[in-house]
Computed example of a mutant assay.
Amino acid sequence: MTGTGSVELTKGFGRAIAGSLLFALPLLMTMELWRLAHSVERYRLALLVLAAVLLVIGLSRTFGAGPGGVGPGGYLADAGVAILAATLAATVVLAALGVVDPLMDWQAAVSVVAIEALPAAVGASYARSQLGQGSRRPRISGYGHELFLMTAGAVVFAANIAPTEEVVLLAAEASTVTVAALAVLSLLLMHGFVYGVGFGGQERSTEGFLRSFLTLTVVGYAAALAISAYLLWTFGRFDGIGLTTAVKETVVLGLPGSIGAAAARLIL
């Protein structure tokens, strides 16, 4: 590897560290997640880690990180660097805060770092691919890409809220009318963010309001709800409750999830 290549690799790894902290620092300092890491069932934690890996591979395949991001070997390498940076950043911060001690209790440290890895890895992938000078920025097109980006955005926003008790409390106090109004508000905010308020990256609805609303906003909101339900299930929020309460919790978490989905379409 040439000297220039080594410098670029180092800079890319540094961007990945910074992106990890930018996306995951709120979760790294959330006490509920520290506790959940020790109580969540191991197979749910393993599925969460697998989901994080697949999501980062998808992001690397979509965006890459320059010349090394081209082709299967390149984007798999990009994903590996992003995951390594996310793991390192989470471990260092959690150790500095005294939450984990990797030397004295590595098993507990692995559990806490693993449950923190999802938004950190997404942040690392985004920073490596999109924030560097000369980063490869292909034009994203196609319905599948749109849905993937919305799903990734929903993951980041919902993951920061899902471990907290506020979701459970808000759902417990919400009436059916409140939940329905929250769903409508989420849809309106999603559509308005992308098409209506003049943010940079705002899209133009070329297929008419109804078609874009149904095929992108509604489907994107459904993806945000699915991500919200998955995260709540992973963290044990559905254990011992009825279907009605589970739906309420999902819709409550779907609000930040839907904002994340809309933001991803604008930013990415």
Rank of each mutant, 00 (worst) to 15 (best):
Arg44Met: 10
Ala174Ser: 12
Val197Asp: 08
Ala65Asp: 11
Gly134Pro: 02
Arg237Ser: 01
Gly153Cys: 01
Ala152Tyr: 05
Arg136Cys: 00
Ala181Asp: 06
Ala183Trp: 07
Arg211Asn: 03
Leu187Tyr: 03
Leu231Thr: 06
Phe213Lys: 01
Phe235Glu: 12
Gly260Ile: 00
Leu25Asp: 00
Thr2Pro: 09
Val168Asp: 03
Gly242Glu: 01
Val7Lys: 15
Leu25Cys: 00
Phe157Pro: 00
Gly192Tyr: 04
Gln202Glu: 10
Leu231Cys: 05
Ser258Lys: 03
Gly236Met: 01
Ser186Pro: 09
Gln107Ala: 08
Asp78Glu: 11
His145Asp: 02
Val197Arg: 08
His145Tyr: 00
Ala158Ser: 14
Gly200Tyr: 03
Tyr143Val: 06
Val70His: 07
Gly198Ala: 09
Lys11Asn: 11
Val112Thr: 09
Gly198Gln: 10
Val100Gln: 08
Ala86Gln: 14
Ser60Tyr: 06
Leu231Gly: 06
Ala51Met: 12
Ala95Asp: 08
Thr178Leu: 03
Ala261Ile: 01
Met31His: 13
Ala117Asp: 10
Gly240Arg: 03
Pro26His: 02
Leu149Gln: 04
Arg128Lys: 03
Gly73His: 05
Ile267Asn: 09
Val53Leu: 15
Val112His: 08
Leu189His: 03
Leu182Trp: 07
Glu32Trp: 01
Leu76Lys: 13
Ser258Val: 02
Ile57Arg: 13
Leu216Gln: 04
Leu188Gly: 08
Ile259Trp: 07
Ala263Arg: 13
Thr217Lys: 04
Tyr230Ser: 08
Ile161His: 00
Gly80Phe: 14
Val113Cys: 15
Gly134Arg: 08
Phe148Thr: 00
Ile259Leu: 13
Val110Pro: 07
Ala109Gly: 05
Val177Leu: 14
Gly200Val: 04
Thr151Pro: 09
Ala263Met: 12
Ser111Ala: 15
Ile83Phe: 15
Val112Glu: 04
Met104Ala: 05
Glu203Leu: 11
Leu169Met: 01
Asp105Leu: 04
Leu76Met: 15
Glu116Pro: 10
Gln202Lys: 10
Gly201Asn: 12
Gly142Arg: 03
His38Gly: 10
Val53Asn: 15
Val155Asp: 00
Arg15His: 11
Thr245His: 04
Ala229Glu: 00
Arg211Gly: 02
Phe209Ser: 06
Glu249Arg: 07
Lys11Asp: 11
Gly5Val: 14
Trp233Thr: 00
Ser125Gln: 12
Ala222Ser: 07
Gly14Ala: 11
Thr250Arg: 09
His191Ala: 06
Ala222Glu: 06
Lys248Pro: 01
Ile17Tyr: 14
Glu207Ile: 04
Ala261Cys: 02
Leu45Glu: 07
Leu185Met: 00
Leu189Arg: 07
Phe199Tyr: 12
Gly71Cys: 09
Val194His: 07
Ala79Pro: 10
Ile83Lys: 15
Ala77Val: 11
Ala16His: 12
Gly3Arg: 09
Leu268Glu: 05
Glu8Leu: 15
Met29Asn: 03
Gly144Pro: 04
Ile267Leu: 10
Ser20Gln: 15
Ile259Asn: 07
Phe13Asp: 11
Leu210Trp: 11
Ser125Asp: 12
Leu225Pro: 11
Gly240Met: 01
Val177Gln: 13
Gly80Val: 12
Pro163Leu: 07
Ala82Asn: 15
Leu28Phe: 06
Gly201Arg: 10
Phe13Arg: 14
Glu146Met: 14
Ala90Tyr: 04
Phe157Asn: 02
Gln202Met: 09
Ser175Pro: 02
Phe157Arg: 05
Tyr126Trp: 06
